[in-house]
Design a protein around this nucleic acid. Sequence first.
DNA 1: TGTACATCAGTGAACGCGCGTTCACTGATGTAC
DNA 2: TGTACATCAGTGAACGCGCGTTCACTGATGTAC
Lengths: 197, 197
Amino acid sequence: MAYHHGDLPAALLSAVGMIVNEEGIDSLTLRGAARRAGVSHGAPVHHFGDKRGLLTAFAKQAAVHLERCVLNALTPVALEDPAGRLVAIGLGYLEYSIIHPAHFLVANRDELLDTSDVALISARQRVVRLVNGVFGELVALGRLPASDREAAALAFWTLVIGLTAASDGLSTEVLAPGQRRSRAHTALELFAGRLTR
Amino acid sequence: MAYHHGDLPAALLSAVGMIVNEEGIDSLTLRGAARRAGVSHGAPVHHFGDKRGLLTAFAKQAAVHLERCVLNALTPVALEDPAGRLVAIGLGYLEYSIIHPAHFLVANRDELLDTSDVALISARQRVVRLVNGVFGELVALGRLPASDREAAALAFWTLVIGLTAASDGLSTEVLAPGQRRSRAHTALELFAGRLTR
DNA sequence: TGTACATCAGTGAACGCGCGTTCACTGATGTAC
DNA sequence: TGTACATCAGTGAACGCGCGTTCACTGATGTAC
């Protein structure tokens, strides 16, 4: 192998993902990630500073993935169908957790990240704005009283998180991704229907 | 302080709870628990063998707490009201997670426990049987087709886990316990009503 | 095109740290007689 | 009631371990002239 790696940052981030998936987030070490990327354990410091920096970069990827998943789900849904857009957001979030399980885990562990990192903050805000926007559409179209907006958003996230966490919770109820998607679809449509009645 | 502690096992288990609550489960160490209990770091081995043993004992407590919460919630509900009993189970589970957050966290981390411990297994089975029993009542009363039983149980746990995890998920939506209880009540009644129609 | 040199990227030895665990020990307690 | 002794519960020093981080270094690359 050449002395210079080629794209060590990408290799390290990919190593993080593999390790989290295979051994769990608690087994993730900076040395392990370097080992996996085929590089000495001192190398990561040149790109990420320290362990927190590496994980923060990983969480930035997570925010981008989440945004892409939500946008993908939202694309085919008409603006005039805000309930459908709500369902799409929920399914996009679920899809993100299914496709990028390691990113999902790391991004939800703020205590491991540098939450003051401006790039991370802005990456996350993009998603928040996207979701807030849809609730705004609901209100603007008169389908949701402005006073219910906050409560509705909370209820919405409870449902989405439940659908997402279902296979992480009690070890007895692991569902295949297909089952999770269809179940989530049903539940979200029910919710969105009631919410925007 | 006397040479003998008095009730070191209880003190250590209580120390585990405090540490998990205050510093998080990842900061929990055997040495830290011993320190907290005011005892040298070698002492725990006499009662729990090793770290896994201590956490397994803590998870046994968790199962007992969960069972008590579910039973408490179930007590005032008539046997002839299986939908109400379902709601009660969900609220009991939520109550357990609110009252015993550290136990809730530890008990859901099987990788830290000795899952082959027979006392732990049997403590957990009591709760499982309790819940299965209520779904059995629903079927027996003709309120739920036997063929839907498994799917209904899965849907039920998705909802309960969602309601429970809501404040652990995205850091932006922390709810007061009171809000969580009332929201869970509403959602569970909606669910139980639809399920047993 | 060649050369000098600054910069960048990775190496590998070394550091201190807190951890889980082991072990010989000792103080306290309980029990047999 | 005393005494001997086994057992139990806790001590504290020591162990090896992998970790994150630092540091002087060196090989590779790019750029100025």
